[in-house]
Computed example of a mutant assay.
Amino acid sequence: MLHADAVEVLKSWHAPDAEQEELRAHYLHHLSTHPDGMWRSCRPEHVTASALVVDAAGRNTLLTLHKTVGRWLQLGGHCEPGDTTLTGAALREATEESGLSSLTVSSEPLQLSRHLLEAGGCAGAYHLDVQFLVTATSTEYVVSEESHDLAWFPLDALPPDTDCSVQELASRAQHHLAQH
């Protein structure tokens, strides 16, 4: 069910540029050749779901200072057996990692990001991350055991050492929010 949902989400998504279209095609090829492509056990890569959480005003984003990576990242992670949709996986991850309960997830991806894991249990594997925009009605969060810290940052003023993929995600979110 989750595998089929991921294929449908990616098939129906209109990538905003050539680079994202190339990733979309790569993800679809991966899923067509790996029935287990949604699970962390799939190597050398597997699909993950993440959430760029923004406040109700659409000005700030909640980032996690990830324990394993040691950098500010969007919320998200591996799909789990109980997940039936990619949006549901992103929403579950955002809720688990932030303690926020009043979250709304976009129906289509904001961005795709393929990145190599260099630490933790997936070191050496690639995450094929499907990144969604998630809106929070409350800003009161709880730091989970996966994080050193959580903090709200203006979308246009992320911490200086923020990974370029997170900066690009925030920029796409700003553009998306300005249009809606």
Rank of each mutant, 00 (worst) to 15 (best):
P109Y: 08
L91D: 10
M38A: 04
E97W: 10
H26M: 03
T135M: 10
P35R: 09
L155K: 12
W13H: 07
E145P: 02
T68F: 00
V69E: 06
E19Q: 13
L110I: 05
S32L: 06
P160W: 06
H66T: 12
P16A: 03
L112C: 06
L2Q: 01
D163G: 03
Q174F: 00
L133M: 11
E22G: 06
A18M: 04
A18H: 04
L116Y: 05
G58P: 07
T95D: 02
H115N: 09
V143K: 05
R43L: 05
Y126Q: 08
A4G: 02
L117T: 13
S165Y: 04
G82D: 14
E146F: 15
S32A: 15
H66F: 05
T64M: 13
G58K: 07
D17L: 12
L10Y: 13
D149N: 08
Y141V: 13
P44A: 02
L150H: 11
D17M: 10
A178F: 02
A173W: 04
V166S: 02
V143F: 02
L116S: 07
F153S: 08
Q167M: 07
A136D: 00
C122N: 15
G124P: 08
W39Y: 15
F153A: 07
D161P: 07
H180F: 02
S12D: 07
L2M: 07
T68P: 02
D129Q: 05
L103F: 01
V47C: 06
A57P: 01
V54D: 07
L31K: 09
K11N: 10
A89L: 07
S165V: 11
A4K: 09
T68H: 06
Q167C: 05
L110D: 09
Q74D: 12
R114V: 14
L110S: 12
T139R: 15
G82E: 14
S138R: 10
K67M: 08
Q174P: 00
W39M: 08
V47M: 03
A25Y: 05
D55K: 11
